[in-house]
């Protein structure tokens, strides 16, 4: 099912960031769980590629959750309510609660940000930033870094295969691992640097460093309504945070 895009990427990214802030402001495991169930799960299901995103979340958050529970569940010297004890390892109620708090928070962070990142259309985001008049150097660096990522991974894979065809053996003793790492990384970095040098000349020839306005070839998908909504959302979260802390301080 292809995704039906409703909002501009900037709006979606901002909404994700604000959710993260809200989770930090409220800071209870109940609220984190509620956000997880009410926002992240529907978001993933409606994203158009739920399986891919769910897998990415599981791979990123799973080990974190597990190690967080092992770390704080077993080693929490501040805990007083001891549930079980083996040698230096003590399972305490406080430790488990602490692990649930940080673990759920991490799960929400991962879920919200990964869903936003994996559904965002980079060309659309870059064109929106250009239309909104963001610093074009920043837009170039961010856009081309994200575009380069899969390219770097693919290139590293190809170089590894080529070196293996020449007799590179991966694994074994430490010196041989280091040699293997260098045999892959030197051609990789050299190739990327030569590409970068060519790109410098191409960009210069197209007036990258000259001042003046820029034209984006892609149409602006942003709307005035969404711009207003973004400001309102940010102001709303800020107001909520202030109110929350005021109430918390009064208690």
């Amino acid at each position: 099912m292809p995704r039906r895009r409703v909002f501009n990427p900037l709006t979606e990214l901002l909404a994700a960031a604000l959710l993260v802030v809200l989770v930090l402001v409220v800071n209870t495991w109940q609220f984190s769980l509620a956000v997880l169930v009410a926002a992240v799960v529907p978001g993933v299901l409606l994203s158009g590629k739920p399986r891919q995103i769910a897998l990415a979340i599981a791979v990123t958050a799973g080990p974190l959750l597990l190690s967080s529970f092992l770390l704080h569940g077993l080693f929490f010297p501040e805990g007083t309510t001891v549930l079980a004890e083996w040698g230096p390892a003590r399972v305490t109620a406080e430790g488990l609660q602490f692990a649930a708090l940080t673990g759920l928070r991490l799960a929400v962070f991962t879920g919200v940000l990964l869903t936003a990142a994996l559904t965002v259309s980079i060309p659309e985001l870059v064109s929106t930033l250009t239309h909104r008049g963001w610093n074009r150097r920043l837009v170039f660096v961010v856009g081309s870094a994200v575009g380069l990522l899969p390219h770097v991974a693919e290139r590293a894979r190809r170089i590894t295969r080529a070196q293996q065809a020449r007799g590179l053996v991966v694994g074994g003793s430490v010196p041989s691992r280091v040699r293997g790492l260098l045999m892959v990384s030197v051609p990789l970095v050299t190739g990327l640097l030569i590409d970068a040098a060519e790109r410098t000349q191409l960009l210069e020839a197209r007036g990258f460093s000259s001042p003046g306005p820029r034209t984006s070839y892609l149409p602006d998908t942003d709307t005035a309504g969404q711009r207003t909504a973004r400001w309102l959302l940010a102001a709303g979260v800020l107001g909520f945070a202030c109110a929350w802390y005021a109430v918390g301080a009064g208690r």
Partner: peptide, 9 residues
């Protein structure tokens, strides 16, 4: 520009 192009890399 040459530093900027290096950064994404």
């Amino acid at each position: 520009t040459s530093s900027l192009v290096l950064m994404p890399l």
